[in-house]
C-alpha cells in the first residue's frame, strides 16, 4: 500500500471511530435529537464530543511519542513510559488529590509541574550520555522514584475517599472528561506533537548509528532536545488529564511496521493516526461494558497491551536465538 493511501485509510478510520464515539454510550441519543432542541443533545455536545476529541489527541500523541522513542532509542520495546515522565506526572496528580487541591487546574498544574521536574531530572541524569541504555536506565530510575513517592503519598492520604480518588485516577480514564480538560491538555499535546514531527530525518539517520548520523549532518543534541521535550509535553499533558494510559505507544508502531516498513520517519504520521484510532476504539469499548460503570481506559489498554508486549518479547528473543 502506498504511503498516501495508508494515510488516507487511517485518517478515514479515525473519522469513522470519532463518529462512532459520539453515538456510543450508556444513554441513548436518537439521531433526530441531534438537529432539534432536545436536551439530550447536551450529552453529545458537552460529554461525548470533548471526550472523543481528547481520545483522538491522547491517542495521536501517545502513538507518535512511541514511534519517535522507538526510533530514537533504536529499541522496538520502547514506549512513552520508558522515560519515566508519565510516572512523574502521575505523582503530581496524586499529590494534588491527596493534598485536597484537585479542583480547577489543581491536578493539571501539579501533574505538569512534576512532569517538567521529571524531565529536568532526566536531563541531569543523562547529561552528555550517548547510549540509548543511559536514557532507559535514567527513565527507570525516575519511574521507580515517582512510583515510590506516589505510594508514599497515598499512604498519607487523610481519608479513604482521597485514597479511592487517587487510585481511581491512576487507572487512567476518559470518563467524565469535558471541554475544560480538553482545553487544558490540547495546547501541550499539539506543541509536543509538532516537536516530535520534526525528528523524522534525524531518526532515519540514527538507524545507521550515532557516528554515521553525525557524519550526515545530524545534530544529536538537537534531536535529544526535541524528543525529550516533545514526548514530555505529550505524555505529561496526557497523564495530567486522563491518568496513566499505557501500551498505546508500544503497540501502534508495531502494528504498522509490517505494513509501512521500518523507516522511522515513515512511521510517525501513521502512528499518530493509528494511536488515535486505537484509543477511540478502546474508549468506545470501555463504554459498552455491561453494568452501570465503565471499564477504565488504562485498564483496558493494559489488558490489550500486556499480552502483546509478551508476544513481542518472545519474538525478539526468538530472533536473537536464530
Amino acid at each position: 500500500m502506498s504511503p498516501l493511501r495508508l494515510h488516507v485509510a487511517l485518517a478515514m478510520l479515525v473519522v469513522l471511530l470519532f463518529a462512532a464515539s459520539l453515538t456510543i454510550g450508556k444513554a441513548s441519543v436518537p439521531l433526530d435529537a441531534w438537529w432539534s432542541a432536545d436536551p439530550r443533545f447536551a450529552i453529545i455536545a458537552e460529554l461525548r464530543l470533548p471526550r472523543a476529541a481528547l481520545a483522538t489527541l491522547l491517542g495521536a500523541s501517545l502513538g507518535l511519542s512511541g514511534a519517535v522513542l522507538q526510533g530514537w532509542l533504536r529499541n522496538p520495546l520502547a514506549d512513552p513510559g520508558v522515560l519515566g515522565v508519565s510516572s512523574a506526572a502521575a505523582l503530581g496528580a496524586v499529590a494534588a488529590i491527596v493534598l485536597g487541591q484537585a479542583g480547577g487546574w489543581g491536578i493539571f498544574a501539579a501533574a505538569m509541574a512534576c512532569a517538567a521536574g521529571g524531565l529536568a531530572l532526566l536531563a541531569a541524569l543523562t547529561w552528555r550520555a550517548e547510549t540509548p541504555a543511559a536514557f532507559v536506565l535514567a527513565g527507570t530510575v525516575l519511574a521507580s522514584l515517582a512510583a515510590a513517592l506516589t505510594a508514599f503519598l497515598i499512604s498519607l492520604a487523610p481519608d479513604p475517599y482521597a485514597v479511592a480518588a487517587a487510585i481511581d485516577w491512576l487507572m487512567g480514564a476518559l470518563t467524565d472528561r469535558g471541554v475544560e480538560d480538553l482545553m487544558q491538555a490540547a495546547p501541550f499535546m499539539v506543541a509536543g506533537c509538532a516537536l516530535l514531527l520534526l525528528t523524522g530525518r534525524s531518526l532515519d539517520a540514527l538507524t545507521l548509528g550515532t557516528d554515521a548520523a553525525r557524519s550526515l549532518g545530524i545534530s544529536l543534541s538537537r534531536l535529544q532536545l526535541l524528543v525529550i521535550a516533545g514526548a514530555g509535553l505529550c505524555v505529561g499533558a496526557g497523564v495530567a488529564v486522563t491518568g496513566v494510559v499505557g501500551f498505546v505507544g508500544l503497540v501502534v508502531p508495531h502494528l504498522l511496521r509490517p505494513v509501512i516498513g521500518a523507516r522511522p520517519s515513515a512511521l510517525l504520521v501513521p502512528s499518530a493516526l493509528g494511536g488515535a484510532a486505537l484509543v477511540l476504539a478502546a474508549d468506545a469499548l470501555c463504554r459498552l461494558a455491561p453494568g452501570a460503570g465503565e471499564v477504565r481506559l488504562g485498564v483496558a489498554m493494559a489488558l490489550i497491551g500486556a499480552p502483546f508486549f509478551l508476544a513481542l518479547l518472545l519474538g525478539e528473543r526468538g530472533r536473537s536465538w536464530r
Partner: peptide, 17 residues
Amino acid sequence: AVHWNMRVRDLVALGRL
C-alpha cells in the same frame, strides 16, 4: 549495524540527507 530492517533502497537514500 543497521538498527531497523529497512529496504535497501531507502537505506542507500539516507546518503542524500
